[in-house]
């Protein structure tokens, strides 16, 4: 679809350390990031028309973990606010839709993850089918190894897979983005990163029902987001394991002319924040004139089960 309204990413901030944030609560990790993003946009705390966040109780190890981070947002007087139990990329999608309805002109989007509160290798097995798969406790790296094997068998990767790929890095952190529509976006940002399209699609959960060498949900989301209407110069891909990048590159038809993940290795970013970081990094590249048309991708679930694609453009 063509969005009925021009909406742009106008500000982006993230925590920049690697590893666990010892001694910092999620609210404490989030506060400077929110401050940075709001300052870039010239917004006071609580001033955005809509606020939406993404996080996971299971990573924090406590229910309603997101409620405590409201303390960092400045939700007084009360704010129009929502939360997805997903990567922050999906919070951005919800906020984008809210602005498209016309009920908001600006939105603050943030995500936070503190995987160091537990062992993500165990915790992430709890996202699997609770009756048939989760009882086996297969960690993400084991499932990714199945995918790497399938890719090698299909001849999509040059060499047979090596040892089981390493587990995702345990990094705590947060990121925030400000969205704004039309003239508000132009006031807030010299070169807004306009969201030309965004879409997300999910695939069946059971690995046996999927072709692990392909990502039809990524391809469909990209089509719906208008990614194939014109070439992109930049792609920020969320591939938790290295072999998955090859799957995404093919699904998105990215050739060697496209700069992929100039921001660094997505696997090193905090869980539940990584997708939002991809969107933010793609936008920031447009903000500083290093890209004119960028694709950002986020994923969720085992072996790229659920994928989101957004296309961002700067004015010529």
């Amino acid at each position: 679809m063509t969005p009925p309204r021009d909406v742009a990413v106008v500000a982006y901030a993230r925590t920049d350390h690697q590893g666990p944030a010892e001694g910092l609560s999620e609210a404490e990790a989030l506060l400077p990031v929110l401050h940075d993003a709001l300052a870039q946009a010239g917004l006071a705390p609580g001033e955005a028309d809509f606020t939406c966040s993404g996080s996971s109780d299971y990573l924090a190890g406590r229910p309603f973990s997101f409620t405590l981070t409201l303390d960092a947002v400045g939700a007084w007087p009360p704010i129009a606010e929502s939360h997805v139990e997903m990567d922050g990329a999906w919070a951005l999608y919800e906020a984008w839709v809210k602005i498209l309805t016309g009920r908001a002109d600006t939105a603050l989007v943030y995500a936070h993850g503190k995987p160091s509160a537990g062992d993500p290798r165990d915790v992430l097995t709890r996202t699997l089918d609770p009756y048939y798969v989760a009882p086996l406790w297969p960690e993400p790296a084991s499932l990714a190894a199945l995918q790497a094997r399938a890719l090698a068998d299909a001849g999509h990767t040059g060499e047979p897979p090596g040892p089981t790929p390493g587990p995702p890095a345990v990094t705590d952190g947060a990121a925030a983005v400000v969205l704004a529509a039309g003239d508000a976006a132009r006031r807030m940002c010299a070169r807004p990163a306009w969201i030309r399209g965004a879409d997300h699609r999910v695939e069946p959960h059971a690995l046996g029902l999927r072709d692990l060498t392909d990502s039809p949900s990524t391809r469909l989301a990209a089509e719906r987001a208008g990614a194939f209407r014109a070439p992109v110069d930049t792609a920020e891909l969320h591939a938790p394991f290295a072999a998955q990048e090859a799957v995404l590159r093919r699904a998105l038809r990215l050739d060697d002319t496209v700069t992929v993940n100039p921001s660094g290795d997505a696997a090193a970013d905090p869980l539940m924040v990584t997708g939002l970081i991809r969107l933010g990094e793609a936008a920031a590249r447009i903000h500083r004139g290093a890209s004119d048309r960028a694709l950002a991708h986020a994923t969720s679930g085992p072996c790229l089960q659920h994928n989101l694609v957004a296309v961002l453009e700067g004015d010529a």
């Binding site: 929502s82 939360h83 139990e85 996202t127 609770p130 879409d199 699609r201 069946p204 059971a206 085992p302």
Partner: peptide, 24 residues
């Protein structure tokens, strides 16, 4: 069950569609 919408995608006829999980 963490993020159970992933496991529920097929039961909800969501395969090939957008699936969003809200928690407020």
């Amino acid at each position: 069950v963490m993020t159970p919408e992933l496991y529920l995608a097929e039961a909800l006829g969501a395969a090939g569609k957008p699936l969003t999980r809200v928690h407020t």
